[in-house]
């Protein structure tokens, strides 16, 4: 297995924790490798939700995944929010703190959406500074996810994948590669999804996301409301073959079926992984003197 550059753990195949499944999980403790939580749902640390989370935390690794960091926003950072996030991350002992490469509002107003970034030098500088500040404040690796987008801007001066690669290097942060989001944005904007994935530094990928979406014909909406489509599974296999073992998580947020269905969907990822040649073998067979990045590139070429 090729490690990410910080040796953050490969947690296996997890499921996004949703309140409709609390009772099932607490009664059955299903064999899930790990759970990801939406951070904002637990920041108040009260009520049945937090009680259920604490019980689940006793048996499973938990990773916090936020939706309100608003890393691209031009407002000052919200340290009240960050303080609460830090408290939650410490309580859960999350191996990393994740959120999205987006912004959610401005001038104090929150649209509660993952709004698309202008991919410009100005934005890049701004985002990198904020990531560095947040990583220092939280004392944990920040891992950021590419989002599904429905619009592009003439004022952008670089591609999304160039932006992400440079952002990760300059801020020294991790990446959460949402393969479904790559698929959705590739469809909506007409780019090559594999070109996107090839440009992402594999050793900075700490986690994968998988989800279903809704194809409207003219565009795709990232609804997390269905099974993962075949094209996304193929992209996952492709991306995984570049990075090797990384924590993988299935999200299901609308029309949520029984837990067994969601878990079974997550476990399909394991089947796709098993079709990839063991990356450890590649490393063992590889000629000496190559850097991990070179090995990754060779591996990707072999399994493209």
């Amino acid at each position: 297995m090729l490690p990410n550059r910080w040796n953050l753990p490969d947690l296996g195949f997890g499921v996004g924790l949703r309140s409709v499944h609390y009772d099932y999980i607490l009664e059955n403790f299903p064999p899930v490798d790990w759970f990801e939580i939406i951070s904002e749902n637990y920041l108040s640390q009260g009520g049945y939700s937090f009680y259920a989370l604490e019980k689940i935390r006793e048996r499973y690794p938990i990773v916090t995944h936020g939706v309100s960091l608003s890393i691209g926003c031009t407002d000052p950072l919200n340290f009240t929010y960050l303080e609460r996030l830090k408290r939650l991350a410490d309580l859960m002992d999350t191996p990393w703190v994740s959120d999205h490469i987006c912004w959610t509002g401005v001038n104090g107003r929150n649209t509660h959406d993952l709004l698309p970034i202008l991919y410009s030098e100005e934005t890049l500088k701004h985002v990198v500074e904020r990531i560095r500040t947040i990583q220092d404040f939280l004392g944990r690796r920040v891992v950021l996810e590419n989002v599904s987008t429905y619009v592009e801007f003439a004022a952008s001066t670089m591609t999304e994948w160039e932006f992400i690669a440079r952002m990760a290097e300059d801020a020294d942060c991790g990446l959460l590669l949402d393969v479904n989001n790559v698929f959705v944005s590739a469809f909506n904007h007409g780019f090559d999804a594999k070109e996107f994935i090839d440009a992402i530094p594999a050793d900075r990928i700490c986690q994968y996301h998988l989800a279903g979406h809704t194809n409207k014909g003219t565009h795709i909406i990232d609804t997390h409301s269905d099974h993962v489509v075949e094209g996304v599974w193929e992209l996952y296999r492709y991306a995984y073959s570049r990075s090797g073992g990384r924590a993988t998580l299935l999200e299901w947020d609308e029309d949520i079926p029984p837990f067994e269905v969601v878990h079974a969907e997550a476990l399909k990822a394991r089947e796709y992984r098993d079709t990839i040649k063991n990356t450890t073998e590649l490393l063992t067979e590889a000629p000496t003197g190559k850097t991990p990045q070179e090995l990754l590139t060779k591996f990707a070429e072999e399994y493209a």
Binding site: L115, Y150, E152, A154, H189, H219
Partner: peptide, 18 residues
């Protein structure tokens, strides 16, 4: 001028999704 249309959607339709 800043919002780009896609092959299938106008500038207004793309922002309209949000």
């Amino acid at each position: 001028g800043n919002v780009l249309p896609s092959q299938t959607l106008t500038e207004y339709e793309r922002i309209g999704i949000y």
